[in-house]
Structure formats: structure tokens, C-alpha cells
């Protein structure tokens, strides 16, 4: 006798040889269990699609009353919003303009700020400093927006009032400043990812030709990361235009058109109190009567907001994919 055979020592299996029958027979219970688990996970996996469709469908369903009664053009081009008046008006143009103003203002600050910081972290900082700076950006991202709004209220607003000689510092400019802080971590982290994904042999080739560090950044890294950086700006835009609490607390929330006439031209007025799309939903949504026309109108405002962010995020998505594709093919 040679080696102990497992098969004779272990009684668990009746037959040693695998039979054809056993091979082609599926255990009903095991298979049913596995089948059900797979279907359950398929259901959970597709949940995201259903939720997105549900949100879109719901905005349309709840907003349809107001759309029918008021009309889409009144919503987009109407200049006055008086939902509680006896002759209610639902022109959301002031909110749209305010949202765009505040967001563009924020980006004017946050884009150079974020991109230069991203260049520093990704390309210039030594490794140890880099490791210390990354958590800084992450902590920015977890700052609750309501706390930033509070800071805007007590710190930035008085400064704005003093500098521009205003009686009330809650203006579009105040909101833009604090909103730039809000958009900053998004811009830094996406731009940094994009710069990091530039292959190092691109850069090494240039260094080998005697280029300075800055020439490499300017001529190699930035052009290669261009799509990703534009995506960072787009995502920053999406983040800022959808932000509620900071603008709600910092922008003053007046419902008039934020414009002034200057040399015969109509220009946006950054030193006036403004109300954004998001702020308007937050202010009126908490006590609106369910099912009223006003309630329905708020869903139209939500729809406008959704469409703006959807388009912006979609473009950002395409740009990120384009950079990935371009760098992979090279």
C-alpha cells in the first residue's frame, strides 16, 4: 500500500468517479439561490438608472401644471417673480441671471486659484509637501456649506460693504467669493488628476532636450491635460451653480433683476442683492402648499437647474473621456 487515499478515508462522497449525470445535473436549490442573488444584484445595479429617470419624470410631472398654465417662455424670459400676488407672475429670469452671475464670478476666482494650486501640487511640490497638501484639499471638500455661508455672512459681507461703501454687504460678489471656496476642491482635485495622468515619458523627453521645469509644464503637461482641466472647470461650474446654502446665506436674496444701466448698456450688477435658482427653491419650498401652482412652479425652477447641471456635467464627462482616450492612443 502506498499513499493514503483521500477518497477512501473521507466518507462524504458516495461515488468516487464524477458521473456524466452529476456533471450535467444542476442542483435546483443552489441554482435557484444563485439565480435569485444575481437578479437581486442586477436590480440594485440598475437602481441608479431608475432613480435618475424617476427624478426627471417627477420634475416633469410636478412641473407640468405650471408649464401648461404659465408657459416655458414666461419662465425663462419673464422678469418678475410674484408667486403670492393675486395675479401671480412666474418669471425666473432674475434667478437664472443671478445663478450665472454668481457662478461665473466664483469661477473667475476659483479657476486660476484652483489650477495654479493643482500645478503646484502635481508638478512643483516635493513629494513630502505633496502628501501634506492633499489632505488640505480633502478637508476643504468636507466643509459643510452652511458653515461657509456663515463665514460669508460674518466675515466677507462686512468687508464687501466697507470696500464698496454699501449699506448691506450681502451681494452677488459676496456669494461669488464664498462660492469660489466651495468650487475650489473640485477644480483642484480634477485638474490634479488630469495633470498626474500625463505620462512621465512625455515630460522626460522634453527635459532631455534641456527644457526648464516651467517650459515642460507650459508646453507639455498643460496641453496634454487640457481636456481634463476644462472638465475640472465645468465640474466646478456644476458644483457652484447647484450650491444652495452658501449663496442663500451670502447673496441677500432680493428677487429683482440684478442689472444696472451703464453708458446706455444693460450690464449685470454684482454689487446688488441677488437670488439664485437654488436659493429660491430653498426659501419658498419649505412652506409652499402642496399641489398649488406655486409648488408646481418651483419644480420648473428645479427643472431649469437640473438641465443646466446635466449639460455641464455631460460635457465634463465627455472631456475627461476624451483625455483618457487621447493619452491611451499615444
Amino acid at each position: 500500500m502506498r499513499l493514503p487515499s483521500l477518497k477512501t478515508n473521507v466518507e462524504s462522497t458516495q461515488s468516487v468517479v464524477v458521473t456524466k449525470q452529476k456533471l450535467t445535473q444542476k442542483s435546483f436549490v443552489t441554482n435557484l439561490g444563485d439565480y435569485l442573488m444575481e437578479k437581486l444584484f442586477l436590480l440594485l445595479g440598475t437602481l441608479a438608472i431608475f432613480i435618475l429617470l424617476l427624478i426627471v419624470g417627477f420634475l416633469i410631472r410636478e412641473g407640468s401644471d405650471a408649464l401648461r398654465e404659465v408657459g416655458i417662455s414666461e419662465f425663462i424670459f419673464g422678469q418678475s417673480w410674484y408667486p403670492s400676488s393675486s395675479e401671480p407672475r412666474y418669471g425666473a429670469l432674475p434667478f437664472i441671471i443671478s445663478s450665472v452671475m454668481v457662478t461665473v464670478g466664483a469661477l473667475l476666482l476659483a479657476v486660476p486659484w484652483g489650477i495654479f494650486t493643482a500645478i503646484f501640487i502635481s508638478e512643483i511640490a516635493p513629494k513630502r509637501l505633496k502628501e501634506m497638501l492633499k489632505p488640505v484639499v480633502e478637508i476643504f471638500a468636507i466643509f459643510p456649506s452652511v458653515v461657509l455661508g456663515f463665514i460669508a455672512l460674518i466675515v466677507i459681507s462686512p468687508i464687501v460693504a466697507n470696500v464698496f461703501g454699501l449699506s448691506n454687504g450681502l451681494t452677488a460678489v459676496t456669494a461669488a467669493v464664498i462660492l469660489s471656496v466651495m468650487a475650489l476642491p473640485t477644480i483642484i482635485s480634477i485638474a490634479e488628476d488630469s495633470l498626474n495622468s500625463v505620462p512621465s515619458d512625455f515630460k522626460e523627453g522634453a527635459y532631455a532636450l534641456g527644457a526648464t521645469k516651467w517650459e515642460v509644464i507650459k508646453n507639455i503637461s498643460l496641453p496634454a491635460a487640457k481636456s481634463g482641466i476644462i472638465a475640472a472647470v465645468m465640474l466646478g461650474f456644476g458644483r457652484a451653480v447647484g450650491e444652495t446654502m452658501t449663496v442663500l446665506m451670502a447673496a441677500g436674496n432680493a428677487i429683482d433683476m440684478p442689472i444696472q444701466h451703464f453708458l446706455g448698456l444693460t450690464v449685470p450688477d454684482f454689487l446688488t442683492s441677488v437670488r439664485t435658482l437654488t436659493a429660491n427653491i430653498a426659501i419658498e419650498g419649505s412652506d409652499v402648499a402642496w399641489g398649488s401652482l406655486h409648488y408646481s412652479a418651483l419644480f420648473v425652477v428645479g427643472m431649469i437647474l437640473f438641465v443646466i447641471t446635466f449639460i455641464v456635467n455631460l460635457i465634463a464627462d465627455l472631456l475627461i473621456n476624451r483625455q483618457r482616450g487621447a493619452l491611451r492612443n499615444d
Binding site: 468517479v17 464524477v18 458521473t19 456524466k20 452529476k22 456533471l23 450535467t24 445535473q25 444542476k26 442542483s27
Partner: peptide, 20 residues
């Protein structure tokens, strides 16, 4: 062909196949 069964046969029980 393993044990008179084509392993690509859709009826094959992968659990049994991989146990064997």
C-alpha cells in the same frame, strides 16, 4: 470531452465541473 460530456455543453454544471 470530459466524462462523456462536452464541457461547453450549456447543461454542464460549472460547480460540479470545477469541483471535479
Amino acid at each position: 470531452i470530459y466524462q462523456d460530456v462536452d464541457v461547453f455543453d450549456p447543461k454542464v454544471n460549472l460547480v460540479e465541473l470545477r469541483s471535479a
